[in-house]
Amino acid sequence: MRILLVEDDPIQLELAQSWLAGNGHLVVGATSGNAALKALERDSFDLAIFDWMVPDVSGQELLRWVRKRQKRLPVMFATSRDDEIEIATVLNLGADDYVVKPLRRLEFLARVDALGRRAGVLGTELDDAFELGPYRVDPRQRAISLGGRMVKMTPRMADVALLLFRKRGELVSRAQLYEQVWGQREALDSRTVDTHVSRLRQALELDGRHGWRLSAVYHHGYRLETASGA
């Protein structure tokens, strides 16, 4: 998963980042609320982990921001105390889960993965084939058919398509595409991404005529959305 981790202590941030990376996740770290907001505005994530106490923008405000703009983003809170009222507050505000600090590696990683599975962004259900109008998407075969006709794609194009179909309705940043499809964490080659997306749009006729449109979101990335924009 691509995870936004907000923690104001650089030591705890580096440690948790290394745990998550060791478990196969891509992690973007932020040490302040404002840095987290910037990352949320320009990028896309599968899951976010917020510390309850961060400078400048509180965890509570961050959560409100997310729930207004990215309702489906799973959010976990790291709370410092095993305090029933604080935990209830966090969950009532719309957090999906919480973990009590100090973080324990195995519990933390298990909770992150469990939340990812519940949110449908991690796990075996991602391999199940599904249909969207005339499109049939088969992740196991890395294949997509349109109206019963198999669409020819390169493996890279198929990977880009699978990610966009899985995250339909959501903004997927170029960085996320680049990292998850090409496995590159640095020196984003946006032209490579754009070229593949353009070919994909053409091959799958994602221009609205079959009910789905692959739209570019200026300076951010792409969104696969219904032709009505709903």
Partner: peptide, 17 residues
């Protein structure tokens, strides 16, 4: 103190945490 408690605990320094 809050920051120290979190960091020390995560790094396995239970008594310091």
């Amino acid at each position: 103190a809050h920051r120290l408690a979190g960091a020390a605990g995560a790094l396995g320094l239970e008594a310091l945490s």
